[in-house]
Design a protein around this nucleic acid. Sequence first.
DNA 1: TCCAAAATGGAATTTTAATTCCAAAAGTGG
DNA 2: CCACTTTTGGAATTAAAATTCCATTTTGGA
Lengths: 285, 285
Amino acid sequence: MNDASQETVEAHVSSDNAPDTIDAFFARLGNTAEDLPKRLKQFADFIAANPDRVAVSTVAELAQGADVQPSAVMRFCQEMGFTGFSQMQRLFRSSFSQKWPDYSTRLEKLREHGTESPSALLAEFVEVGRASLENLMATVEPRALQQAVDVLARAETLHLVGFRRAFPVTSYLAYAFEKMDVPAVLHSGIANINMDHLIKPNDAVIAVTFAPYTQMTLDIAEKARETGADIVAITDVVTSPLARFKAIQLLVSELDVGAFRALSASLSLAIALAVSVGAQRNKTN
Amino acid sequence: MNDASQETVEAHVSSDNAPDTIDAFFARLGNTAEDLPKRLKQFADFIAANPDRVAVSTVAELAQGADVQPSAVMRFCQEMGFTGFSQMQRLFRSSFSQKWPDYSTRLEKLREHGTESPSALLAEFVEVGRASLENLMATVEPRALQQAVDVLARAETLHLVGFRRAFPVTSYLAYAFEKMDVPAVLHSGIANINMDHLIKPNDAVIAVTFAPYTQMTLDIAEKARETGADIVAITDVVTSPLARFKAIQLLVSELDVGAFRALSASLSLAIALAVSVGAQRNKTN
DNA sequence: TCCAAAATGGAATTTTAATTCCAAAAGTGG
DNA sequence: CCACTTTTGGAATTAAAATTCCATTTTGGA
């Protein structure tokens, strides 16, 4: 009760004007910075130069960084229209990881509205695909990718393992490698013939699997590890069971629409990997 | 004595090893995730999927996000070798500013360094994929898409035809239809067994092919047309030979990097089509 | 040079979050 | 089926950080 009434009052007072986007914040900062008192200006300059620190620092840390007192930081925040530092920090924190969260809400909306038109659904997949691609650039470690290419370029024969949802990825890899004359075996599971024993110590396996992980993929990976073959894993998270096999991990976090994913990111990663390997192999030949 | 020796042990245990880089952390996570108790594993998965949240969230927020108790978060942190959450968060915060530069800046940097590294190639595919997706929305006629969905929802059995470069598309369709209990046959060409004669008048064929067009796809489409089955074509241009068969055409113009394409647009279109068909079929049931 | 207003530093207080602790529940091996 | 260990949830405690307050200093105008 007490809290509620207090909050109402505070909200009213601050409804005044608190920037609600980072851009609005910096616009305001640009306008008012000139006629701020010395210490506040000093702090404003620091923020302008180190905007990324706001989200992950305490008042004391920022104060020390800008060489001002913590109370000066508080005054600055209030000067900028916030009720305090916490509110300002909330803004900086939310702007950082906003890409992801609001997709899950959008997804719910889609579920509520049912299936709508096919075009709307297509738009959804396109949108999610674009976000996934963008994210791909952030999550794939250039070093790991380079390492994967090296390993695959050195290997004798490549083995492509991935079933169900991952099969489009491996089958496309098979196509690409064939076009580039790279010896690659697509483990298809046809006729329940186990191709494990084809894997030789000098070979390498590209294992593709996403949660829920396909057991057969894990089995083949294990066999490969025992044989001594290298493993490159295209999977979704580091806690993937493929981690056990000392694989070189390439992580793809693909957003989904309902129960399905567009696979855009996974395929892009796969084809980039394939082309790089093909190029490196044909160079050394 | 007793106390002294105990303290020594404790000190030894805690100086143990706390990961001092993000990479080390995730390496350790990958190793130990397997044999973590249920709730801790649950939280580990959440962290693996949302690593960027750790730097800017409180224990309570993360706990809520992973749907575990705050104390479980603490236990997890200790299990990973930290003294507590604060220490772990410090690690994530220290590497925060390095991730701050977003996708577009990262891409520019890669561009400058030339097209040598695999990462640069990946960036190329990502960029091209995004453009293709954008283009897709423009080239696909909502009316044609709706028409295709109607036809496929009415059909008895669906036949998925597409080879070589188009095979990832048809195999993903097969996966999607299976998951939605829609009867669909993937024409795989295995063992050179011709599955033409499976196509009945009330069936429909989804034919996928891009230049240079695969003859077998055209042959099956022709057979289907003779039988009286409907044809939905996913292809690249209106002059595609599939046009001859009075097919409903869905056009995808996929940009390429060198001789290869990322297939992002084709797969997005395919999955949107599949989900729409599945929804419409299960609605009428 | 003096006064009033504004600004500042730092300690005191309040709020919030991290951490510990313990009883209850869920497994496990005999 | 029982004793014993591990795991879990949630409350209690402790630590840390945000925020306020006020005495002191600085600034600018008469």
